[in-house]
Amino acid sequence: MTRSLLTRRYLLAAGGALAATGASGLLVPAQAKGLAPTPSMRGGANNYLPGAPIVERIGGGGFWMSGTVRRAGDGAPLAGQRIQIWAHTTEGYERDPHSHGATLTDANGVFRLEMPQIVPAFGQPHGHLAYDSGEFETVFLRPVMASSSDTSLEAHFVLKPV
């Protein structure tokens, strides 16, 4: 009786382990799909003004908006991509043209633009970023600061070719 129970238990354990190995083996190819494109965030395009000029910095600066731009699939960094940035800051509203500016990514696909301190507006301290140059699908981001006393904010783009 005892022996037969042990035998069954052993069989179940061995069978289960085998099944788990097989299942995990079958799941592996799913990881090879590659980097998924970043979807636009809700409200990301609010108060967007097309054609923000490329600037050294927005207003007096003191706050850093940075991030990366990569290609969907292989994740290759994209150089020379124009990213537009705007926010409600100590120097103006989101809709004010002087609150808007743009910058280009460097050879590593990294962008970094100094701007005035972002202050909470409409209940959250947040910024807006846009990619809409046409080579890749348009993406609008709306990252939220963890704390309104932060002096920097990051946003990352993974773009899908059109």
Partner: peptide, 16 residues
């Protein structure tokens, strides 16, 4: 102050 943000709220599609 910000029409698009209020429109989003009234249509229940605001991110906040």
């Amino acid at each position: 102050t910000s029409p698009p943000d209020v429109v989003d709220v009234l249509l229940f599609r605001s991110p906040t």
